[in-house]
Design a protein around this nucleic acid. Structure first.
Lengths: 329, 329
DNA sequence: TTGAAAGCGCTAACAG
DNA sequence: CTGTTAGCGCTTTCAA
């Protein structure tokens, strides 16, 4: 030490009490003058922390290049900056996710994790056993003991379908991602609620589960096309499905939106680039990302048997009106 | 130790010589049985390494949610997995980039960095002074002493314009990102080369620099529209500009691609979702990402005065033919 | 080839 | 309030 004490410095650095104002000021000045920076690695060693949080995707329907989650990650970053954690990206294949994470825990290379979309119950359990704090972002099924941030897709669906109804459409089909049961059910429920409130009925031939792949959406549109009576509007629960559906529809000779209105949920960036530009219910993905890190940080700093609300719901945005819905009458 | 030696274990763990086969096997077996995992943090401390590499964007024209760089990041991740480094995302505002990175170096929290797109000479210098290895991904200007991976956009431009010419177009305009001079010049050169090879001349009124924002592209299209004689095809050096241009064109009552063909460079994911689906020269962004980490790793492990080629050029992909170019005659 | 011992740069528990 | 001390879990000389 240039001047004074050995471990008092530690207290100063960590803004802890136990030092007189004089000493504190002196130390701070010397730190400033010498440009001293503590070595994070020794802190990591003694504190048994890594200051790393991982973003990991286990679902095959999520990915870092998924436009939805990509926006969420922007929120994660923004919110994480204040906490001095590194956010590290990890694209582990599903089958190795939990073992790979467990290894990271053993190595003390991870303090917490944010999962993009639901994880399997057994990996949640494995993580809990390894006592790794984590939160799932954009959860669809809400297990009591898994912390998550989610949004009310049933509400979003209702809002979307209501928009269609207010635009004058009575015959509304539902083309939706069917591979995530809870998600599909939520959207189905919102769809039915909106229909019900308007006194409309649901034609079962018009609800077709699919996945966000062009070929699958093509066959879904095919089925719709084969119906004796066709809807005049389509609700999709993902922008990507809506975009593919519009492409299919146009390939079948439909003029959009006159021959078929399409409205969906997400507001990914491609929604403004596709044709027709897509009318869609905005989901504040960035907000979800921020909420996820806030939850995770709370979990990391939770005191013994402190209760933390672990399911946090972010609100649904407005319906972004673009060109894919024909405003009738 | 359950059995034998104290520091021999270290040699075994790091696959270093100096241990007999017997000891090695014994130790390895015990490690397997006990499921022992070394604590990374103490290695970090003693080795003065973090096993972190940062991905950072300093340019205001790059970002993590930029679809181009986003794909590149997938390549970075994929290639990094083998090296046991964490890839951490860092969205530092431009003005703090170099100081923030220097701090990370002081803290021993970073071993290397990958920049998305060009960095300013002064930050390159600052990084070199801090002796932080780094590489810039998708470099446009190639300073001798800054390691980078780039691709030959002049060639891509030539390929793109040649495609237009082969499709029967003789009057070809150039709407391009003008804010990155080196990039603009490279594309301009490719554009002129293709024109020259075909014996075509360049109408200066038809080359209009712009930026990838709807409003700016709108005014660029406006200018084109005001020309006494108009081109029948447009070369753009970025998909996003092409997509905006097509939207503008359609708003002006053009039928695409009959009234105007559009072709560009990048092949971002939105290129297949836009309307008309965009014909574009593929850039292997993933490959660039991989090349960047390979370069960086070589830099990290370079022995004293070992020479490493620091400019690596990735090849240009095929022209992905979609619907935005009218194939004439 | 192997073991003993000295740190890496910090924090925390303990006396003064 | 302050200084002394003992580690955190590893790697690495250096002798044996």
């Amino acid at each position: 030490m240039a001047n004074v004490s050995p471990s008092a410095v530690s207290l100063v650095l960590n803004h802890k009490p136990g030092v007189s104002e004089d000493t504190r000021n002196l130390v701070q000045q010397i730190i400033r003058e010498t440009g001293y920076t503590p070595n994070l690695n020794s802190q990591k060693l003694i504190l048994r922390k890594s200051f790393n949080i991982f973003i990991v995707v286990e679902s095959c329907f999520a990915a870092f290049d998924n436009m939805f989650y990509n926006s969420a990650i922007m929120g994660v970053l923004e919110s994480c900056r204040a906490f001095n954690y590194n956010v590290v990206l990890s694209d582990i294949p599903v089958e190795y996710a939990s073992s790979s994470l467990k290894r990271a825990v053993d190595q003390k290379n991870i303090d917490g994790a944010i999962f993009l979309q639901d994880i399997r119950p057994d990996t949640a359990k494995a993580l809990q056993e390894a006592s790794l704090p984590f939160v799932v972002l954009d959860a669809h099924t809400l297990a009591d003991d898994v912390p998550c941030v989610y949004c009310d897709y049933a509400l979003a669906a209702e809002q979307c379908v209501s928009f269609l109804i207010h635009a004058g459409h009575c015959n509304i089909g539902f083309l939706g991602m069917g591979e995530i049961p809870a998600f599909h059910m939520a959207c189905m429920q919102g769809y039915l609620t909106a229909l019900g409130k308007a006194g409309l009925h649901c034609n079962p031939n018009w609800v077709i589960p699919t996945i966000p792949e062009k070929a699958d959406v093509d066959t879904a549109v095919e089925r719709l096309h084969a119906c004796p009576e066709r809807p005049d509007a389509l609700f999709c629960n993902m922008d990507l499905i809506a975009i593919y559906a519009m492409q299919s529809l146009m390939q079948h000779g439909f003029t959009l939106p006159e021959d078929m209105s399409v409205c969906s949920i997400d507001n990914i960036v491609s929604a403004q680039y596709c044709y027709p530009a897509l009318t869609t219910v905005d989901i504040d993905k960035k907000e979800m990302g921020k909420a996820a890190v806030n939850l995770l940080m709370a979990l990391l700093e939770r005191k013994p048997d402190e209760e933390i609300p672990v399911h946090i719901c972010t609100s649904i945005g407005k319906t972004i009106v673009r060109d894919s819905v024909y405003i009738g009458q």
